[in-house]
């Protein structure tokens, strides 16, 4: 823990916890939200530190955090993919889109690929029903997805990432 404290990450974490002095379990969700805002996800270490701060067992915190869809446990990838599973997209075949992405990237929702390039998230309606089935990569929307379109999108993104390196 001492090493974590010396990093910038450790300092940010400490700073967030200090916003909630003598806090009880009612501060749990606000703290987790603050952490996710800053770091983009909740790590094992962060949860352990929150537990120590609030005198709560980590199993309880993990239980609460997994109850809500908003919390992630892996850092976001360079390309964060959101697959819309709202009603309109569902009717237009978003289950197949999700399956294609899982297969192509060998990634499950909530996970981040080992190279840190892609992370996958399932979301409810993102309000672009006219584009169904739709996915969003970072701030870019991709409309009327099909298997071949998905393959093309990822090929482009991978190439783009390589040229950046």
């Amino acid at each position: 823990m001492a090493t974590a404290m010396q990093t910038a990450e450790g300092r940010d974490l400490q700073e967030i916890l200090e916003r909630y002095p003598n806090a009880g379990r009612d501060a749990l969700i606000p703290i987790l939200q603050d952490l996710q805002d800053v770091f983009g996800y909740l790590s094992r270490d962060m949860i352990a530190r929150v537990g120590a701060h609030l005198h709560l067992p980590v199993s309880k915190i993990y239980g609460v955090a997994t109850f809500y869809n908003q919390f992630r446990f892996a850092a976001l990838g360079k390309y964060h993919i959101q697959v819309c599973r709202g009603t309109a997209c569902h009717v237009k075949g978003s289950a197949g889109v999700l399956d294609d992405i899982r297969r192509l990237l060998t990634l499950e929702p909530g996970e981040t690929s080992r190279d840190g390039l892609f992370s996958l998230e399932v979301v409810a309606c993102i309000g672009a029903c006219g584009l169904a089935p739709v996915i969003r990569v970072n701030d870019e929307f991709y409309a009327e997805m099909t298997t071949s379109k998905i393959e093309r999108v990822f090929k482009t993104l991978k190439k783009e990432a390589e040229s950046h390196d």
Partner: peptide, 17 residues
Amino acid sequence: AIDFIGRGSSTHIGTAF
């Protein structure tokens, strides 16, 4: 050591992480 993890039909009981 254990608590409810997840929610809805995927709820299960397990340890932290």
